Amino acid sequence: MQPARPAIAVVTPSILTGLGLESILRRIIPMAEVEVYDRFERFAAERPDRFFHYFVASQTFVEHNAFFLERRHKSILLTEGAPHSTLRELHCLDIAQSEESLVRDILRLHQHAHRTGHPDAHAAAGGEPDRTSAAAPTALTPREIEVLRLVVEGLLNKQIARRLDVALTTVISHRRNLVRKLGIRSVAGLTIYAVTKGYVDAEQLGASE
């Protein structure tokens, strides 16, 4: 009896991203069964625990973080650009890089998963596993966490200043500190960080849209 083919899921609302990843995965891991889902609900209905890897779009990860964090050993977050060091505990794949680099990183991730039973986050990002433990980012202050939450909610600097009853320059200073401490500039990146660290409830984010 032939062993079952390893199954890989690509979960992204982007048709181009999904089809592109499917094509690459089928080419470099020909023994794998690759399934593409444009909605989490379709993916969840297809016995998701049978998949060896989940390649997940950032927004889908944020909206259903409880599911993917519980299965972080097999979940790979699709990023557009190099993943931030603050997301080191997540397994990330930069889909904005060249196809050659993307293929290399997927192969490293897949090979590492078979050696150890789970993919290493840094290896998935295109480097060797980091055994020296880079310094953790400086802890955020309570006020910086407040600002982070409001940024993730979609408020502008002036709105945050009004909400916290502080000067606009104070908000700008806090946001500058967030960038310096976390190394994350985009709201999408801050959202993923905030959800992962438990600063923001992803269900509330979905309800506010």
Rank of each mutant, 00 (worst) to 15 (best):
P6L: 06
P6Y: 07
A7P: 08
A9I: 09
A9F: 11
V10E: 14
V10W: 02
T12Q: 01
T12Y: 05
I15P: 00
T17L: 09
T17I: 15
T17G: 01
G18M: 02
L19C: 04
G20I: 06
G20F: 02
L21D: 08
L21A: 05
E22H: 07
S23I: 02
L25D: 03
L25P: 05
L25Y: 06
L25T: 08
R26C: 10
R27Q: 10
E33V: 07
V36G: 02
Y37C: 07
R39P: 00
F40R: 03
F43K: 08
A44Q: 10
R47L: 04
R47D: 15
P48D: 01
D49K: 12
D49A: 13
F52M: 12
F55S: 02
V56G: 02
V56Y: 00
V56A: 03
V62P: 00
V62I: 15
N65E: 06
F67C: 04
R72D: 06
H73W: 03
I76P: 00
G81W: 06
A82T: 06
A82V: 05
H84G: 15
S85L: 07
S85Y: 05
S85Q: 07
T86M: 14
E89V: 14
L90C: 01
C92N: 10
D94G: 09
I95M: 09
Q97V: 14
S98L: 11
E99P: 09
L102N: 11
V103G: 05
D105Q: 11
R108I: 13
Q111N: 15
A113M: 08
A113T: 15
H114F: 15
H118Y: 14
H118T: 08
H118D: 01
P119T: 10
D120Y: 00
A123G: 04
A123Q: 09
A124Y: 08
G126M: 07
G127S: 13
E128I: 08
D130Y: 01
T132W: 11
S133Y: 12
A134M: 11
A134I: 14
A135V: 10
A135N: 05
L140A: 05
L140Q: 04
P142L: 06
P142C: 03
R143S: 08
E144N: 02
I145Q: 13
I145R: 10
L150E: 12
L150M: 10
L150H: 09
V152C: 07
G154K: 04
R162W: 05
L164Y: 06
L164H: 03
D165R: 13
D165N: 14
A167V: 11
T169A: 10
T169E: 01
T169G: 01
V171Q: 01
H174P: 00
R176D: 12
R176Q: 13
N177F: 03
V179F: 03
R180W: 04
L182T: 09
S186H: 06
A188N: 10
G189Q: 05
I192N: 13
A194H: 03
T196M: 11
K197R: 15
K197Q: 15
Y199C: 00
V200W: 02
E203A: 15
Q204C: 04
L205S: 04
E209K: 05
